[in-house]
């Protein structure tokens, strides 16, 4: 991840944390949806910046354009009071119950595993070219135009049936390193990126033009995730390879 990428990641995470905190005051069933939508919106704004435009000032301007975190709760549930008003009204009760709640929370958190499911690793069990017959029919060919870049899909094994694609994979994608290296003995390494997200369990991987030309047709490349974040890791099943077809 570049230094601009790291700065962006920090700014985005801080903002989402503030929004999440603001939304927690209204307990709306769609609070999580709002967070996901805001996260996607921020990703889109960042993706529109050319590398030269990714200055700290521009990144901060994107966050400023989103508006204050307190707006979210008010707009999601206009009937709710502000957190400050709630606190003032319930102060005596809050004070009396605080110690009990905190103690109970600590005990429960130790006794019961977290209910929020989150992928901490994803296992790649297949790698194939986007413009091939292996691509599921649900993914339209025109979704990725044919050009001089290489376009691949990684199929992953992990899937929570009760969660949608974005909800279960976005937290992982936001945290995990997007870089992979394709290796083959006697050939230069090829650097690729998981940069566009996924269609269900199929993750899009782009091989930039300058890397794609380094790949030799007919050579079997193994896949090596960079995995700079040890908490969110890609794994690769043994035997998974990708081979550039002869033109």
């Amino acid at each position: 991840m570049t230094s601009q990428g790291k700065t962006w990641h920090r700014l985005k995470t801080e903002y989402l944390r503030r929004v999440e905190k603001a939304l927690s005051s209204v307990k709306h069933p769609r609070s999580r949806d709002v967070l996901d939508d805001v996260s996607s919106h921020l990703d889109r704004r960042f993706a529109e910046l050319e590398p030269a435009q990714q200055t700290r000032e521009n990144l901060q301007a994107i966050i400023a354009d989103m508006g204050p975190a307190s707006d979210y709760a008010e707009l999601l549930d206009p009937d709710s009071t502000t957190p400050t008003q709630k606190l003032q009204r319930r102060f005596p009760l809050w004070l009396g119950l605080a110690a009990i709640v905190i103690a109970a929370a600590i005990l429960l958190s130790r006794a019961i595993p977290s209910k929020v499911k989150q992928h901490k690793h994803l296992t790649i069990s297949k790698a194939y070219w986007f413009h091939s017959d292996e691509r599921p029919r649900s993914i339209p060919a025109e979704a990725v135009p044919k050009d001089d870049d290489g376009h691949m899909l990684f199929h992953v094994d992990e899937w929570y049936e009760e969660m949608g694609t974005a909800k279960q994979y976005r937290p992982f994608l936001n945290q995990a390193d997007e870089r992979f290296v394709l290796k083959a003995d006697g050939h230069p390494d090829v650097h690729v990126n998981a940069e566009r997200g996924c269609w269900s369990k199929e993750f899009y991987i782009r091989i930039p033009r300058k890397e794609y030309v380094k790949m030799e047709a007919g050579v079997m490349y193994t896949i090596h995730p960079v995995n700079s974040n040890p908490k969110y890791r890609w794994k690769v099943r043994p035997g998974v390879i990708i081979c550039k077809p002869n033109q």
Binding site: L23, H28, R45, G67, Y72, L76, D77
Partner: peptide, 16 residues
């Protein structure tokens, strides 16, 4: 012109 983030809580509420 609105603050960009404002649209999402409103859309969520309209969905509800």
């Amino acid at each position: 012109k609105i603050r960009e983030g404002n649209i999402y809580p409103i859309l969520a509420r309209l969905q509800t």
